[in-house]
């Protein structure tokens, strides 16, 4: 492989990795705070994609409609998340993990079928929006601008989230609840509201990723199933509940996939799972997580 091809793989690996990071960070934040493994997280991402397609195709006459979709899509998924948290998840926090897993599996089925009802079983595409639709050259090589844009989005969201968690009162409250629910409660923090808020934040991130992905990929049923397993791998590699872990994990998985496909296409899928197994065996709290 020459240097150009390598750079191309790195770039495409990073851009997919950054979209995965957006989804996985939501999953990780939700797990960290609510201690719930939300299987339906990938489905929220998929709904974001359908919303992006629906908004851009229905209101195609409005200029810069994609950018409007980018604002509205994640808000819609966050609201959906709020409903799910308040009406369903809230009832099962005290239950064993098994019930949480199966409940969110039920959500996959319900939400997936609703998508099928509304948008059908076909594939949909969204064209790359202006002004990030061209190609640009870096060090004399030509890349799609949209890939660069995705990487920037991922990094910006990562920095933004870290800043919110570290430096704002909101972040302190979330960290307090994550650290010790009872104590936070005793300190007068409205824990249920924080839970709803964190879940909505997670769904907002998934919706954001869902809206960003279509110009590079397709909108279709079933994408949720593939993505949720990738997110599990990322979250395990980085450490369950760790934001920066999800960032590193997403980069690792994105690169492993990009290079794997071109070098050892048959073993690529296995690589992610192998990484997950190795981490779970030797360091189950992940690269950047904290041991209990």
């Amino acid at each position: 492989m020459d240097i150009e091809a390598i750079m191309g793989q790195v770039l495409s690996g990073l851009s997919v990795g950054m979209v995965l990071f957006l989804i996985a960070s939501g999953l990780s934040v939700i797990f960290g705070t609510l201690k719930i493994l939300n299987l339906a997280h990938g489905t929220i991402y998929m709904i974001g994609g359908f919303l992006c397609y629906w908004i851009t195709s229905t209101f195609a006459h409005i200029p810069a409609i994609f950018w409007l979709a980018l604002i509205l899509g994640p808000i819609a998924t966050a609201l959906l998340g709020g409903l799910i948290e308040i009406f369903l998840l809230r009832r099962i926090y005290a239950e064993e993990m098994l019930y949480q897993y199966i409940l969110t599996f039920g959500l996959i089925l319900i939400l997936g079928e609703l998508c099928k009802l509304i948008w059908g079983v076909g594939y949909h595409t969204v064209s790359v929006p202006w002004p990030v639709d061209g190609k640009m050259s870096i060090f004399g090589m030509i890349y799609p601008v949209y890939n660069i844009f995705l990487i920037c989005c991922g990094v910006a969201v990562f920095i933004g989230l870290m800043a919110v968690m570290r430096f704002t009162g909101l972040g302190r409250i979330i960290r307090a609840v994550t650290f010790n629910r009872e104590m936070a409660n005793a300190l007068g923090i409205n824990v249920p509201m924080v839970y709803t808020g964190v879940f909505m934040l997670g769904c907002w991130l998934a919706g954001l990723a869902g809206t960003l992905m279509p110009p590079m990929s397709v909108v279709a049923l079933g994408t949720d199933m593939a993505v949720i397993i990738d997110c599990f791998i990322i979250v395990v590699i980085g450490g369950m509940g760790s934001l920066s872990g999800a960032f590193i994990g997403a980069i690792i998985l994105g690169l492993v996939n990009a290079f794997g496909i071109s070098l050892l296409p048959k073993l690529t899928i296995a690589f992610g799972f192998l990484l997950m197994i190795i981490i779970l065996i030797i360091r189950h709290w992940g690269l950047l997580g904290k041991p209990e």
């Binding site: 039920g106 089925l109 099928k116």
Partner: peptide, 17 residues
């Protein structure tokens, strides 16, 4: 119906709750 998984999902959620 081709939407039988919708019903399965509802059954599953009902079971858990």
């Amino acid at each position: 119906t081709m939407y039988w998984m919708l019903f399965l999902g509802i059954i599953v959620v009902f079971l858990v709750l």
